[in-house]
Simulated scan of single mutants.
Amino acid sequence: MSALKISVLFFLELVIQLAIVANSQELVLGFYNDTCPEAENIVNQVTALYIYNDSTLAPALLRLTFHDCFVRGCDASILLEPTNANNATEITAPPNLTLRGFEVIDAIKTKLEEYCPGVVSCADIIQLAGRDAIQTAYGASWVVLTGRRDGTVSLASEALEDLPSPYSNFDALKQKFEAVGLSVKDLVVLSAAHTVGVAHCPSFSGRLYNFSGEGGTDPSLDPNYAKFLKQKCPPNDQLTTVYQDPITPNKFDIGYYVAVDQHEGLFESDAALLDDNETRGYLESQLWTMGWTWLEDFGVSMMKMYKFKVLTGTEGEIRKKCGYVN
């Protein structure tokens, strides 16, 4: 083989190896320290301003992190608006119709584009804003690694298929969580995000008026709690909301576990945590210890979720506007 051919082959191999390294880049702490030093401060400041004006946006922004990550990984595909080419993006899927907080993400992106255009991904903004919103409203926090890039595909059909449903039994929940690299422990840990926020009546009214299609009330619900929910949500009520955690709805704590243990979990998916030995055991251990490890466990499980199948390196893109591909 000639020296020229060897040089060409060596060059091609080097290019391939560099591409592999670029596309396998890990998420890190402070990814933007050199390219956009004020990035995380800007996210925090804009998020805090919105939360001070409307604290209900905190659980809404946390919910947005989950709905993004469970479909295609955390790639901001949840933010893509319908277009003539694709009028059925994730945001149009029924499970996403009650999502809120998009204006916060857009405001953060606008500010960042002024400071360091084309650098910070919408996918990272979602994760940082979700954490910062909870920290501002409730004082709880966890580590967020950065370095994600934005996806270019968003399909309502995938959201319908991949997002856990409030009507899920334990087996269905386990399958959805395993599909994004999460364990049974992660399932019970992250389910406690329901300790804050509200839910619309249709997401649980089937338990009140037509459980199992037989016209009755779910027997696993505490009777007094079922009576309260019926008072709040008469049949066919589409607009009323109810706290997901009836014990401590304004604290980021284990009140949710207390409610589930007392058969006051709002969703069928909440009640399902009592149907498995591992999830019930974890729940009971947190009750015994007053939530001694829950917040730490929550941070660990969040990290597992937001690192799963993300785009890094040269994959995807950095959107100029979060609602549209470049």
Score class of each variant (00 low, 15 high):
residue 176 K to Q: 13
residue 173 L to F: 06
residue 101 G to M: 08
residue 152 T to P: 07
residue 126 I to S: 05
residue 123 A to F: 09
residue 131 R to V: 03
residue 129 A to S: 15
residue 112 L to M: 15
residue 162 D to C: 06
residue 134 I to P: 01
residue 205 S to G: 07
residue 205 S to E: 03
residue 177 F to H: 07
residue 116 C to K: 09
residue 171 D to V: 07
residue 135 Q to K: 13
residue 167 Y to I: 07
residue 119 V to Y: 11
residue 204 F to W: 08
residue 118 G to V: 14
residue 108 I to R: 12
residue 198 V to P: 00
residue 153 V to G: 01
residue 148 R to N: 11
residue 161 E to H: 06
residue 141 S to H: 06
residue 185 K to G: 00
residue 140 A to L: 04
residue 157 S to K: 10
residue 198 V to W: 00
residue 133 A to Y: 04
residue 157 S to G: 05
residue 204 F to D: 03
residue 182 L to W: 08
residue 163 L to K: 02
residue 118 G to A: 12
residue 198 V to A: 02
residue 180 V to R: 09
residue 165 S to Q: 13
residue 161 E to K: 04
residue 151 G to V: 09
residue 112 L to N: 14
residue 189 V to H: 12
residue 203 S to I: 00
residue 142 W to L: 05
residue 102 F to D: 01
residue 150 D to M: 12
residue 148 R to M: 11
residue 151 G to R: 10
residue 183 S to Y: 10
residue 180 V to H: 08
residue 155 L to T: 00
residue 162 D to R: 07
residue 194 H to E: 12
residue 151 G to T: 14
residue 157 S to R: 11
residue 174 K to W: 07
residue 178 E to R: 14
residue 186 D to T: 02
residue 179 A to D: 15
residue 182 L to F: 07
residue 140 A to C: 10
residue 103 E to Y: 01
residue 144 V to P: 06
residue 190 L to P: 14
residue 116 C to A: 06
residue 126 I to D: 07
residue 181 G to L: 01
residue 188 V to N: 03
residue 120 V to W: 07
residue 156 A to W: 01
residue 205 S to D: 08
